[in-house]
Design a protein around this nucleic acid. Sequence first.
DNA 1: TAATAACCTCGCAA
DNA 2: ATTGCGAGGTTAT
Length: 289
Amino acid sequence: MSERFVLPFDGPLDLPTTLASGQCFRWRADDSGAWTGVIGSNIVRLARTPEGVAIESAPAPPAELAERMAAYLRLDDDLPAIQARIGSDERIREGIDRYPGMRIMRQEPWETLAAFILSSTSNIPRIARTVELIAETFGDPLSLDGTTRKTFPAPETLAEAGEARLRALGCGFRAPYLAQAAAAVADGTLPLDGLRGASYADVLAALTALHGVGDKIADCAMLFSLERMEAFPADRWIRRALVDWYGLPANVSYDGTRAWAQDRFGSDAGYANQYLFWNVREASRKRVA
DNA sequence: TAATAACCTCGCAA
DNA sequence: ATTGCGAGGTTAT
């Protein structure tokens, strides 16, 4: 059996709702309730324990990844304080009550951008399937206690693979978008790692310069991987919530949703978005049932 | 500036 | 089982 390291943490953290909340697509639960995923060039298994987060990993030993995992799960966010600030809103409160340990993550920018390029007019199961197929096809193998996964391929790899091979994997009309984004990141046209210190407007402009990346996908990449916690990705679910619950006009522009959210929630807009998203989806699901 | 169709496939419901 | 619908958007017109 592999070595195990427990990252101490006593705040709110729920792995199932965090790792299956649609912000990432490669985490899988096993029978024991542990979650296996790939971070960079490591396969990682996580389990919540009373003391914190139990980590197993390969090839790097878990103790070496502990700090990185804490950053990945954004354990540095003071979630109770954030929830106290935005929880005065009734609809956000409902989301918090339902998913109290759901956190936003700090993922790797390239993989996040690629995944959300694939999200266009799609759905979570399909996005996950395609992301996994891309990794399976182009990634490097990893193994942990008999579980094997592959890395998500570098932008250079997907740029070289090209549109046709991506289309053959089920990317559909998103294939050229993904291939072009890969090329832009690979050749430095889009310096993802250099964007962390830039203004929101500059990051948005850099991302939406890509074909196939509009406001919504850019906001997802910013919120989930580029430290922009004020980003408020407004998809059809969020728009439904804003119209049905907050009285915004049905034809509200994307800029209109963004201004509304940032005025109301400021730098907590991203967390507000996440709780609102799952609240409105749950409400919709119940209506159908 | 605002509305509308087209885009690839696939998951899911009937 | 097989079919038909619509999906966490973006772009071109």
